[in-house]
Write a protein that binds this DNA or RNA. Sequence first.
DNA 1: TCTGGGGTCCTAGGACCC
DNA 2: TCTGGGGTCCTAGGACCC
Length: 442
Amino acid sequence: MLSIPLLNGQPPQKHTKSIISPTRSIALVDVNNFYASCERLFSPQLEGLPLVVLSNNDGCIIARSQEAKDLGIPMGAAFHMIKDMLKRQDVQVYSSNYALYGDMSARVVSVLKSFTPYLEVYSIDESFLDLTGFSDLHAYSHNIRETILRWTGLPVSVGVGWTKTLAKIANRMAKKEPNFKGVFVMPNDPEDILKRFNVKDVWGVGEKIAMRLKELEINTALDLKQANPRFIREKFSVAVERIVLELRGTQCLSIETKPPPQKGIIVSRSFRKRITNYNHLKDAVTTYTNRAAEKLRRQGLVANKLTVSLRTSPFDMTQKHYANAANFIFSEATMNTPEMIQAAGSCLKKIYKPGLAYQKAGVFLDALENTQMAQRSFFSAPRTKRIKTSTLMRTVDQINATWGRDTVHFAITGRKQDWTMKQNHKSPCYTTRWQELKQVRS
DNA sequence: TCTGGGGTCCTAGGACCC
DNA sequence: TCTGGGGTCCTAGGACCC
């Protein structure tokens, strides 16, 4: 087991708020090829070999080691279409193992927190750090990088700039140029860097916007920086205008050290095989609803709205593509699994068309509220009944947390069926399941 | 046979109000 | 024969992110 060592008795370095600086210093720290690096962590013999990680259902490539990138294996490629090629090239293939990645992610964050408390966990493998006021950003960034490598075994890159957008670009530079050894601090005059940076790679500029920018002859990050913000706002949106300002060093996106409450919860999945049978679909939707309800309660929230979506495969040429969704508004915000299962069932009935081979279904919980703040309806159940329900839900959650998922479950959820996920290449949960760790050793 | 899942923010346009 | 103007709120859908 890996563990996070203490700081050898040294207090974490304090962020000095007293130093007023006109410009901020923001670092973006992210783990290189995160999923691939996690898999390699526990199989050191894979060092130097190309390795890819597959999406749920072993559908497509979602992460690649550097060696796999060098082989030209594209991100998002359908696994079944490049399977033979991967075999020929001796590429190691893994199904995604989110228990492992989530746990490693938490370890990286806990190390980062020893460098500054002013940190935003942006995604499973990226954090923004406010380093405003630190004197030698270059040395400090190297220190961060080396500490994470030593304590977790994961390689990270650190990019520093005055805004999040510039930090993102600096991070790309840190990765690109081996001489930088994983660290790049944006210089005072970044024009040279921005000139060579394609506008489509700027954070927040996607495919569609990049195309429209090109039509306006805005091809590089420098072109975008020099564009008139008001013109950009009129042509595009405030979001793109903000990018222009951020490139100029004006901070528009702040560091959110406290995660805001979640606005929606999604559980959606592709099936292992196509499903035509209504009851199997209902099983799947019920199970997803159950998961969504668990997530909801874990965060102390209640939902006012539930949506069920259903679709056939967009790649299937043998039938006309069908996608639809229906929603249900609760008379009073709820966290009650049976109530949600019932609602999901009535939604499914509305959108199910017989005779189609379905590929994916999803359940969304929306219009979320804090349990305490939730509005009661006029026809609200009496207080005693509400307390009974929430106690039941809490108990179910506790039993499942202690004894494993689905130890107690609602009728028809939790059985293995045609629709459960395909994961033929999964690595053990090294850091979160003793049982699986033992299997490795024996 | 087989092509992921889970989020956020913004905008346009409709419904509604006075 | 003629039928305003200004505002808010909500929702669906688009774009983007990892």
